[in-house]
Simulated assay, not measured.
Amino acid sequence: MKHILIAFVALAMVSCRTSDAAKTPDKILVFTKTAGFRHKSIETAVKTIEALGMQNNFEITHTEDALLFTTQNLKHYKLVIFLNTTGDILNTDEEQAFEVYIKNGGSFMGIHSATDTEYEWAWYGKLVGAYFLNHPQQATATITRVDGKHLSTKHLPEHWVRYDEWYNFKSINQDINVLLNLEESTYEGGQNGENHPIAWYHEFDGGRSFYTGLGHTNQSYDEPEFQQHLLGGILYCLKR
C-alpha cells in the first residue's frame, strides 16, 4: 500500500510539472524597425498580436532595437516576427546572429513590408520568400485560397474579397509553399501574372518561415478573418 501511495504522489508531481510547463507561454519577438517607409498600422498591429497572445498562450516582446539580435538573446524566443519593417535594419553581426537563430530551429514570420526589407542580404530574401517590387493604389481584390488545410487559411472562403495594398514581387523563392494567390484580373496594377502568391510558408535553413503580404491598413487588423490568418501563421511557426 505504501509503495502504491508513493507511486501515486510521484505521478501527481509529474502531472503538475507537465501542467505548469503547458501553461508557460511561448515567447515571440515582434520587430518593427523601419529605415524607409513607416506604416501607420504598426501600433494597431502590435496591439492585435498582443491580444491574440493573451488568448492563445504566447507573449510578445515588441522592439525596434536591433541590438536585441544577438545569439544569446534570440535563444529566448520561439518566433521572430518582422512586422512592417522596411529598409536596412540589421548590421552584419546582427544578421549573423539571426542566421544562427534560424539554423538552430528558430522561426520567422514576415508581415506585409517584411519583403521591403534587407535587399542586400540574399539569405534574408530566401528566408522571407520574395522581395517587394512595387504596388498600385490600394484596392479591393479577390484572393484565391490555394491551400485550405493550413492553419492560416482553412477558415477562409475559396475566394476571399478584401481591400488592401497589393504588392508585386521580385526574386520569388521557388521553394515556397503558396497559400493564397492574388487574382490580378480583379484589380489594376498587378505585375506577377496568373501566379501571384500573396501568402506562403516554407522550411528554410533549419527553421520555419511564414509570410503574408496582407496588412497595410489599420482596418486589416480589426478583421476577424485576417486576425485568424495571422494567428494561423503564428501557430505554424510555433509548431503547434
Results as ranks from 00 to 15, higher is better:
residue 140 T to G: 04
residue 135 H to W: 10
residue 139 A to C: 06
residue 200 W to D: 00
residue 45 A to V: 06
residue 85 T to S: 12
residue 107 S to E: 00
residue 109 M to A: 12
residue 15 S to Y: 14
residue 37 F to C: 04
residue 124 Y to S: 10
residue 99 E to T: 15
residue 236 Y to H: 12
residue 146 V to I: 13
residue 130 A to R: 07
residue 145 R to H: 01
residue 100 V to S: 14
residue 167 Y to A: 13
residue 70 T to Y: 08
residue 4 I to E: 15
residue 199 A to K: 04
residue 12 A to M: 10
residue 174 Q to D: 12
residue 49 I to V: 14
residue 185 S to H: 06
residue 12 A to C: 10
residue 68 L to D: 01
residue 189 G to P: 05
residue 3 H to C: 07
residue 116 D to V: 10
residue 67 L to I: 00
residue 160 W to R: 02
residue 131 Y to F: 14
residue 146 V to G: 00
residue 161 V to W: 01
residue 74 L to N: 09
residue 122 A to R: 07
residue 212 T to S: 14
residue 30 V to I: 11
residue 200 W to R: 01
residue 15 S to M: 13
residue 240 R to E: 14
residue 215 G to L: 11
residue 162 R to G: 04
residue 60 I to E: 01
residue 135 H to N: 11
residue 108 F to G: 02
residue 124 Y to Q: 08
residue 77 Y to V: 00
residue 144 T to R: 08
residue 169 F to Y: 15
residue 40 K to I: 09
residue 142 T to M: 08
residue 50 E to K: 13
residue 117 T to S: 13
residue 104 N to C: 10
residue 126 K to Y: 09
residue 7 A to L: 15
residue 221 Y to Q: 08
residue 239 K to N: 15
residue 183 E to D: 15
residue 139 A to N: 13
residue 30 V to E: 03
residue 229 H to I: 03
residue 197 P to H: 00
residue 139 A to T: 10
residue 52 L to M: 08
residue 114 A to V: 08
residue 41 S to R: 04
residue 236 Y to R: 03
residue 230 L to I: 14
residue 65 D to S: 05
residue 231 L to M: 07
residue 54 M to P: 00
residue 176 I to M: 02
residue 96 Q to I: 08
residue 44 T to W: 03
residue 48 T to A: 15
residue 147 D to V: 02
residue 37 F to G: 04
residue 111 I to F: 13
residue 18 T to L: 15
residue 82 F to Y: 14
residue 154 K to N: 06
residue 208 R to K: 15
residue 153 T to M: 00
residue 122 A to K: 13
residue 98 F to L: 11
residue 200 W to N: 00
residue 203 E to K: 13
residue 22 A to Q: 14
residue 114 A to H: 09
residue 151 L to C: 01
residue 29 L to P: 04
residue 11 L to Y: 05
residue 22 A to Y: 13
residue 164 D to E: 08
residue 213 G to H: 11
residue 212 T to R: 10
residue 181 N to S: 02
residue 2 K to F: 15
residue 106 G to F: 10
